[in-house]
């Protein structure tokens, strides 16, 4: 409790400091360049100066934090990828050579690609299907709420939940994992699912699909509701049936939203780490880039160079989406 109290105090101090900065810097600016009770020309000049400075007071802290926590690290990671394990001696392309020569990398890369294909596709597909169905039934909102719920659960919590489902007991002991219990019920042999090479990847992906479907559903459901009713009514008058209306009238109109959902999940997948760490820690052929990177950061005291090189690979995979996003945002701003 003492800790919580001190945390509260620190928090209040931090917030107050933040507020004091904004309040104080603005007051200082107004004091240095007063905009009242002065001759007109002086007011005009003061205001011009103040208006040039003030935006930077507002964006300043954000720019500083973003630079220090995101922008500078991107550059530093790039530089570190040419350095050795402590990040001090220059080793040229050695880390890259090591990376492209290691089997573990190819395994991670292959698995990441699998994740990239399966998870966004499955989550978007389920999201779209559920969104289109729940919009037409009276208890749709309750259903959506329940399917959306896993969004709130941490990856590690979800891992525990699913590890329990995949639980395996050898011999004739009763299976307490739901999946094996079902297999036994239908007369099959129970399996230690997460240790079966290759297929275990899919058992891990199920967890992320379970979490992300709700996200896809919420956004696609809003997009579906945004479709003008007239276009659907026109299609009905033109004699289209339900399936045709869905695929030929509705889906094309929300194509942009589907792309957004897809890329958002894709980015999340590239960063997926907790699930693999908790379920297998990369054993049995389930390694992925993010977990491999974490591993190298701390393995044997940590190898910064090799960790950085894996981070660079993840970054390179993200860049196309980043460019697309910026283009889209720019187009949007010009449209304003």
């Amino acid at each position: 409790m003492g800790q919580l109290a001190s945390a509260l105090v620190t928090m209040i101090l931090g917030v107050l400091a933040c507020a004091a900065y904004f309040y104080g810097s603005n007051a200082l600016l107004d004091w240095l360049f007063p905009g009242k009770n002065r001759p007109a020309e002086q007011i005009a000049r003061n205001l011009r100066i103040a208006n040039r400075i003030r935006p930077w007071l507002f964006v300043g802290p954000a720019v500083l934090v973003l630079t220090f926590y995101l922008f500078y690290p991107v550059i530093d990671s790039f530089i570190l990828s040419f350095h050795g394990r402590t990040g001090e001696e220059f080793v040229g392309l050695a880390n890259y050579q090591w990376l492209f020569g290691s089997d573990e990398f190819y395994e991670s890369f292959r698995n990441n690609m699998l994740w990239l294909i399966v998870v966004p596709t499955a989550a978007t597909f389920f999201g779209l299907v559920i969104a289109s169905m729940t919009d037409r039934i009276w208890w749709g909102n309750i259903a959506k709420s329940l399917i959306f719920m896993p969004m709130a659960i941490s990856f590690i919590g979800a891992s525990v939940i699913w590890k329990f489902i995949y639980d395996y007991r050898s011999g004739d002991d009763p299976q307490i994992g739901l999946l094996n219990a079902l297999v036994v019920f239908f007369g099959g042999e129970p399996q230690a699912w997460i240790t079966i090479p290759f297929w275990n990847n899919f058992f891990l992906m199920v967890i992320l699909v379970w979490i992300q479907t709700g996200f896809a559903m919420v956004i696609l459901s809003a997009a579906l509701r945004g479709i003008p009713d007239e276009t659907i009514e026109a299609a009905v008058l033109d004699g289209a049936n339900g399936v045709q209306i869905f695929f030929k009238i509705m889906v094309p109109q929300i194509w942009g939203t589907i792309a957004v959902v897809w890329t958002t999940i894709t980015i999340l997948v590239l960063k997926v780490f907790d699930i693999v760490l908790a379920m297998t820690n990369g054993q049995w052929g389930t390694q992925v880039l993010a977990n491999q990177m974490f591993d190298w950061m701390f393995r044997g005291g940590g190898d910064f160079g090799r960790g950085a090189v894996i981070a660079i690979v993840i970054m390179v995979l993200v860049v196309p989406i980043m460019v697309w996003n910026i283009k889209r945002a720019n187009a949007e701003m010009e449209g304003r």
């Binding site: 007109a40 007011i43 205001l47």
Partner: peptide, 11 residues
């Protein structure tokens, strides 16, 4: 009679 080109709206 006062030029207000650069005077802010409120003044």
């Amino acid at each position: 009679g006062q030029v207000v080109n650069d005077i802010p709206p409120s003044l």
